Amino acid sequence: MQVHTLDKAAIINELKVGTGINQAVHQTRRADFALMLAMFSNDVRDNTPVEQIDEVITTDKLLRQRFQLQEPQALQNDQSSYAISAEQAKQFHDGGLSSAKLSHYLVPDALTYLPEDTHGLPEDIYFNLSGHERRHLADKEPKKLLPADLYQQLVFANRHDQIRAQA
């Protein structure tokens, strides 16, 4: 019965005990002091106030919408990059360098123009590859594994060929 009442007491720290621990120290009652310390909770989360923190998800896209920023400058060219660069070249010829800079700041051009259809490789490396390696780069689907019954298929084809050769 007394054990259950001690469990229900929920002694977490010295604030729950009151002046009992202080009196045990001053009156040198080591047994009482040890008992009170043994009843304290070992879980640090009982002693530390914990608040629920709502995590705000911030992505680059959300921040750009919030501050009304344009899309970031593309690192690599695509088909739309050619139209943008042509417009900037036109602005340069019509209005000079300041007009071309303004056009670039409004709609930034790609940082690099890599050759197309080389699978991200520089031209000199891509054209140095053999035809087989280029074909492997062009394959979108991964190669299928060999069938599990390949040995049986080869034996059947061999026997069928032998029968057809004898006939």
Rank of each mutant, 00 (worst) to 15 (best):
L114F: 04
D54F: 00
G96V: 02
A9F: 08
I84N: 09
Y105P: 00
L35T: 09
G131W: 02
S130T: 15
E116D: 14
I53L: 08
V17S: 11
V107E: 14
K143Y: 06
L97K: 15
Q2N: 11
L145R: 06
L145C: 01
K61A: 08
K140Q: 10
Q52T: 03
L35F: 01
K140N: 14
R45T: 03
K90C: 12
A165D: 03
V3L: 06
L129W: 09
A167H: 04
K101W: 02
E55V: 14
S41V: 04
T59M: 04
E123C: 00
S98L: 09
F127I: 06
T58D: 11
L111N: 13
L154F: 09
F33G: 02
P122G: 08
F156M: 03
G18T: 12
Q88H: 09
L150E: 15
P115I: 01
H4M: 11
L111S: 14
T5K: 14
H93W: 02
S80R: 15
I11F: 02
L137Y: 09
K61F: 00
P72N: 01
T118G: 08
I53V: 05
V25G: 05
L97E: 15
F33T: 09
L114C: 09
A83E: 15
A34Y: 01
T48Y: 05
L129R: 05
D60G: 11
V56H: 15
Q76D: 07
A31I: 05
F127D: 13
V50G: 04
D124N: 12
M36C: 08
S98M: 11
N77S: 12
T59I: 02
K101R: 13
S130L: 08
H26Q: 11
L6K: 03
F40G: 01
L111W: 10
Q65W: 03
P108R: 12
N128V: 05
E133G: 07
S41M: 04
Y105M: 14
I12E: 12
T112R: 05
V107T: 15
F40M: 11
D139F: 08
E133H: 08
D124I: 07
D46C: 10
R135H: 08
Q68E: 13
T112S: 11
E71C: 04
M36A: 07
V107D: 07
H136F: 05
F67Y: 06
Q52K: 08
L154K: 14
Y82E: 12
H136D: 15
T59N: 05
Q79I: 14
H26F: 09
F40D: 02
P142K: 02
L6D: 09
Y151A: 15
E51Q: 11
S85V: 12
L6S: 09
D32P: 00
Q27M: 11
Y82C: 03
D32S: 00
F40K: 05
D43P: 02
V3E: 09
